[in-house]
Design a protein around this nucleic acid. Structure first.
Length: 298
DNA sequence: ATCATGACCTGTTAGC
DNA sequence: TGCTAACAGGTCATGA
């Protein structure tokens, strides 16, 4: 499912359940997702309080009162849903056993007592199991293998034309591939790269280094690209992300940025750029679909 | 070092 | 209707 805007939308949807909540129980229903769960997964989470829920690139980070951080990645098909607490009248404080909504791909269930005292379940579902959950010490997070070499946060202040120029200078890889490289800029995925390139009028096939200036100096092209990346992501977050294939946010609502795609999944449609008569085309780059307009993206 | 590809999984859809 | 192939929002390990 998720690129940066979707992960950010998930984070916001989980905030009221997670922040300040105490984890009363964790059900880990299989030994692994993409990676094995840590041996002490349950032990490290049980009875801990969640201090905050933040995001880095496409990762969700839940800080615990123990100084540990729960690292969560949704892969391609991960999602959370919240089932707020109807308590069992016969067992006050306990959940009525309503398993009717359970799915075979519900892999982790967090039982929470929220900051306001209400019992809630937050359920992680992931059919393809490309997602994962790991633990790390907060103090060592930046040196964790997942984060040691991770690239810029595209909505942070560091992303500007000069930085893209420097990062891409000398790169022979296609511009599309460079933008997907999480070691350069972290958080972009297939959809938003296609959209940002269309807005920037840049071909995904162009060599990444070709938009940098001499010795990596900033150019109009990298300035534009930086601006369009930010605008695309900001608009998508504003719209609640994109909901493909009825994928829902944690509170059950749908994002609607998919209706604003200009190129993604629009093969054969006319280009929407003013005065452009091009047709949106699908090509495959490093094994993945790229959608772009060969007429106005050069 | 850089780049492209296959692998990891399951589910959905298009086409015969 | 049923079967098969292609494809899906990510990223890691491989080999050229």
């Amino acid at each position: 499912m998720p690129e940066l805007p979707e992960v950010e939308t998930v984070r916001r949807g989980l905030l009221s359940s997670f922040e300040g909540a105490t984890i009363t129980e964790v059900e880990q229903r299989r030994p692994n997702l993409r990676f094995p769960f840590p041996d002490d997964f349950i032990a490290c989470l049980a009875d801990r309080k969640i201090i905050s829920l933040s995001r880095r690139a496409k990762y969700l980070l839940a800080d615990l009162d123990s100084g540990a951080v729960l690292i969560m990645h949704l892969g391609m098909s991960g999602s959370f849903r919240i089932e707020a607490g109807s308590t069992d009248p016969l067992m006050p404080g306990a959940f009525a056993l309503d398993r009717s909504k359970d799915d075979k791909h519900d892999h982790v269930v967090f039982h929470l007592k929220t900051a306001s005292g209400a019992p809630t379940r937050v359920i992680y579902n992931d059919p393809r199991r490309f997602g994962f959950m790991l633990l790390a010490a907060r103090a060592e997070l930046d040196s964790h293998p997942l984060f040691a070499a991770i690239g810029l946060e595209p909505l942070g202040n560091a992303l500007d034309g000069a930085t893209i120029s420097r990062l891409f200078a000398g790169k022979a890889a296609p511009l599309k591939a460079a933008l997907l490289d999480q070691k350069l800029i972290a958080g972009l995925g297939n959809i938003y790269v296609c959209e940002a390139l269309w807005r920037s009028g840049l071909s995904p096939k162009r060599q990444a280094g070709s938009i940098s200036g001499k010795s990596g100096r900033t150019t109009q092209r990298t300035e534009n690209l930086a601006r369009h990346i930010r605008e695309t992501l900001e608009e998508a977050i504003e719209a609640g992300g994109s909901s493909l294939r009825d994928h829902r946010q944690a509170d059950g609502t749908l994002g609607y940025f998919q209706h604003r795609f200009k190129v993604y999944d629009r093969e054969g449609e006319p280009c929407q750029k003013t005065e452009c008569n091009g047709i949106i085309t699908r090509i495959v780059q490093s094994g993945r679909s790229t959608f772009y307009c060969p007429t106005c993206q050069r």
